[in-house]
Amino acid sequence: MDIKAYIALALTLFTIGVIGVLVRRNAIIIFMCVELMLNAVNLLLVGFSKMHAISPAAKALPTYASDAQIFVFFIMVVAAAEVSVGLAIIVMMYRNTHSVDVNFLNRLKN
């Protein structure tokens, strides 16, 4: 499989996430679109990792292709921490405004 196929797939998923953030007004859906964008980048990193696994440099160094997958693992760790704090913020926002519409949050005071 060509790496371009994986790049095209990851780009499409990322753009769907961008469109979702621009179009939807529900804060939870926007947060889910951010997760989708993170996953598109993860897929691209794993694809590049496997592209480098058949390069000549990978023969000399056994962990040459594994670094990108460790990176993906850390992205997942950070995403899990981010979701717990972000959902707490959304719950607090719902408690204050009784809505998850981001249009109500266009001013910083009052």
């Binding site: 499989m1 060509d2 790496i3 371009k4 994986y6 794993v46 694809g47 990792s49 496997k50 592209m51 696994a53 058949i54 990978a58 056994p62 962990t63 040459y64 292709a65 594994s66 670094d67 997958q69 460790i70 693992f73």
Partner: peptide, 25 residues
């Protein structure tokens, strides 16, 4: 064209990833 290794290879196995994670990272 740059090919991607499919279905084979040990870059993503737990053995290799665990060694990398607990030595370099």
């Amino acid at each position: 064209q740059q090919l991607v290794e499919m279905k084979v290879g040990d870059a993503g196995l737990i053995n290799v990833l665990g060694k990398t994670l607990f030595t370099n990272y």
